[in-house]
């Protein structure tokens, strides 16, 4: 057993500072274990969220040595040995206290997305290969690490005009559901601000569920928006037929 020093951000809305805590380290320990040990032995009021401790609930996200991670999944032996471990709250969301941030904005956004609307008279027969993609998106545990790292939200703070990667994944899971009947492309183009994403893939990189957010959700959604609004052939056809836009094939 050895001792490692943890530098943990302590504070609230009005500011804070890093406080150093020595922690007894055991084999195979994760960062959340260290936080719990600090709570138990040195700082009983150290605030942090956690639930399952198994990377399934997405509650314990924080920035460990500058990188957004789930604390329950970050092993100490994967961090540079002998160095101090620095833990701070997710930067993109307003801090409440210590490692806890106010993520309520995400819940407000989710409420704006029209829910699943099955086609009337659907048979409910779906092939596995047709639901694989949707199932990938539904693995999301809502840890909001992707939201935290997305520069549109993090650096440019455009929360009022951009839903962020989590909710593009959510919309993709609905839009690509074989039995869904709604067209969410106008939403994507307008309120959700899909165009602001310039596919730097930071979200994909931090996803603890390994969802290919950019390649499998965002880019195909961008293509669908383009098909709907900017395809010259479609525009021409619409002019000739004078018809309103219908759902693209396969939707």
């Amino acid at each position: 057993m050895s001792i490692r020093t943890f530098s943990v951000w302590r504070g609230d809305r009005n500011g804070g500072r890093f406080v150093e805590y020595p922690v007894e380290v055991e084999e195979g320990m994760v960062v959340l274990d260290a936080i719990h040990q600090i709570q138990r032995t040195q700082a009983q009021d150290l605030a942090c969220r956690w639930n399952c401790k198994a990377a399934k609930c997405g509650s314990c996200g924080a920035e460990v040595n500058g990188r957004p991670r789930l604390m329950c999944k970050t092993r100490l032996d994967a961090l540079p040995a002998g160095e101090m471990v620095r833990i701070q709250p997710l930067k993109t969301f307003p801090v409440i206290r210590d490692l806890v941030t106010d993520v309520s904005w995400n819940y407000q956004i989710n409420k704006k997305i029209p829910p699943f609307a099955p086609r009337p008279g659907a048979s409910w027969v779906m092939r596995q290969q047709d639901v694989n993609r949707v199932q990938e998106f539904r693995k999301c545990i809502e840890c909001f690490l992707c939201q935290n790292v997305c520069h549109v939200l993090r650096e440019h703070e455009r929360k009022s005009e951009f839903y962020g990667p989590r909710f593009f994944v959510r919309i993709a899971s609905l839009q690509m559901h074989p039995l869904d009947s709604l067209d969410r492309r106008p939403l994507l183009k307008n309120e959700a601000g899909l165009g602001l994403c310039n596919i730097t893939k930071c979200c994909t990189e931090v996803c603890p569920e390994d969802i290919h957010i950019t390649d499998n959700a965002i880019i195909p959604l961008k293509e669908r928006v383009v098909d709907r609004y900017y395809d010259p052939v479609q525009i021409l056809l619409r002019k000739i037929r004078g018809a309103k836009v219908k759902n693209a094939p396969g939707e």
């Binding site: 709570q39 700082a43 009983q44 009021d45 605030a47 206290r97 210590d98």
Partner: peptide
């Protein structure tokens, strides 16, 4: 009892 901290987000409490 509460050893440390106030009412705000205090897991010890």
């Amino acid at each position: 009892g509460v050893v440390e901290g106030q009412r705000m987000y205090n897991p010890g409490w």
